[in-house]
């Protein structure tokens, strides 16, 4: 049926030159598909156990921001500064709170949004994120802020917003945000998943 295989030796036959191997109809055993399913499961499990809530500041061995021992301070402002650094606010809004035109991040320092009488809109922004056109201090901005409701506790959100509103470095001075306020908003908006837009937020009174 066939010639002996050409080794590295032998004449160069012209005849069979066009061939590629044929393919038989072997189908993989069930065991293979079980293993395949197992690997798929392990792959997704890896992501599920080690996602660190997708936070920029969570590194092994910590599972989430809440478990980092150093995160927190003697007062809400210091604690909030840590959260601001570790949760990744700093990467977008910058250390001095000036924002970053390069990726559409508005300033927090002296921002009219931040310094509003009450924090109800700010809590919502941090919980669910925000996107689309927004006017800050009369300047138009348009960017995309990721939600932090899943990765930060009520207390941490309260701290970071207190820091943002009262940061002496930035010259901000507005009222404190308490964990209870955050908890109340979280419960009220528990069915919401989408990011906020400025237009939606403006319909919500600044103090609830």
């Amino acid at each position: 049926m066939k010639k002996p295989s050409r080794s590295h030796a032998g004449a160069v036959p012209a005849g069979d030159a066009a061939t590629v191997p044929s393919i038989s109809s072997y189908s993989a055993p069930t065991g293979f598909f079980v293993a395949l399913a197992g690997l798929l499961y392990l792959g997704q499990a890896e992501g599920c156990y080690h996602h660190g809530l997708f936070s920029a500041g969570v590194y092994e061995p910590y599972a989430d921001l809440r478990s980092i021992p150093s995160l927190g301070g003697p007062n809400p402002i210091d604690a909030g500064r840590d959260v601001y650094m570790a949760a990744g606010c700093v990467a977008c809004h910058q250390p001095n709170g000036t924002g970053n035109p390069a990726n559409g991040c508005p300033p927090l320092a002296k921002s009219d949004w931040v310094l509003a009488e009450g924090p109800s809109r700010l809590i919502r922004i941090v919980l669910h994120g925000a996107q689309g056109p927004i006017t800050v201090n009369g300047q138009p901005w348009n960017g995309n802020m990721t939600p932090f409701g899943g990765s930060l506790s009520d207390e941490q959100i309260a701290h970071v917003l207190t820091f943002v509103r009262q940061s002496p470095e930035w010259g901000n001075a507005a009222s404190e945000v308490t964990p209870e306020m955050v908890k109340a908003v979280r419960e009220k908006e528990s069915s919401r998943a989408a990011q906020w837009t400025a237009a939606e937020l403006e319909k919500i009174p600044v103090t609830e």
Binding site: G43, Q44, G47, H51, F54, E60
Partner: peptide
């Protein structure tokens, strides 16, 4: 030296 989620995506 990367956030935990990035490492976990690679391992997955």
């Amino acid at each position: 030296p990367l956030p935990r989620w990035v490492v976990s995506f690679g391992v997955a």
